[in-house]
Amino acid sequence: MRFKLESALPFGLLFPSVAFLALLILAPIGQAFLLAFQTETGEFALAAFQRMASDTAFNEAVRNTFLLLLTIVPLQIVLALAMALLIHARLRGQTLFLYVFAIPMAISDLAAGLVWLSIFTERGYLNSILQSLGWIQQPLLLLSYQNPQGIFAAVVVAESWRATAIVMVILVAGLQMIPRDFFEAAELFGAGTLKRTWYVVLPLLRPSLQTALIIRTLFAFQTFAVVFALAGRTLPVLAGEAYTWYYSNRNPAVAAAMAFLILLLSLLATVVYLRVLQVREEERAR
């Protein structure tokens, strides 16, 4: 009896999280799979994917998603690393830095999008300030559909502001796991701040960088609310198109196909990061 209880315990403890994952993750994936691959008559076909790819906005959405990803993710990593190193330097007031840097994490992405909309819009804070300073006569139309670069830049700024903090938190945690002796040894043996960062901090931070990159890239594929708030459909992105197919076009099949594409890209990116940034057994600290 006792033996039975003991062997059942691990499964019992696992059950809640497995049930959670099954109900909220696996079941919707299965449903999306059926939606994407099944026709109305119940046959399996790629019609939804063909429809998705033939849409005029599709190529643009793919291009924009990747452009945003390739701009925002490196920018965020560099910014977050600088912020993390600043906090790690244990300057006076370092906890204040940490709290200020972390504020955007507490704000939902749609709210963040609206905050930046109120800054960048025609009668927004940015234009009011510039006008009251007398630097411009006419308000800048940053978010106009005639100014795609302006919209793109606004999205980059808003997304970076919103989601850099999470990367920073991961990197700060990673830095704190590295024994201080390594930094001191590097400094003592002649490495200045830049060399120390390049030759010691970054290699030892690889596991955290890997985590941060995976999380950020996955979220970048799902970028939606900030873009939606700032640009509507002027700057189509993959997740936004999925939303449009579902709500405006009333076509759940194509929306599901879109979601599947995002899932596939996310998996692919994860595998690449796991391979490229792998820390080999012999390089691990003991």
Partner: peptide, 17 residues
């Protein structure tokens, strides 16, 4: 790094990578 010294640390601080 400007003091022209070398040091052996208690934990060794030998770089694992």
């Amino acid at each position: 790094r400007d003091r022209k010294i070398a040091m052996v640390f208690q934990s060794y601080a030998v770089f694992p990578h």
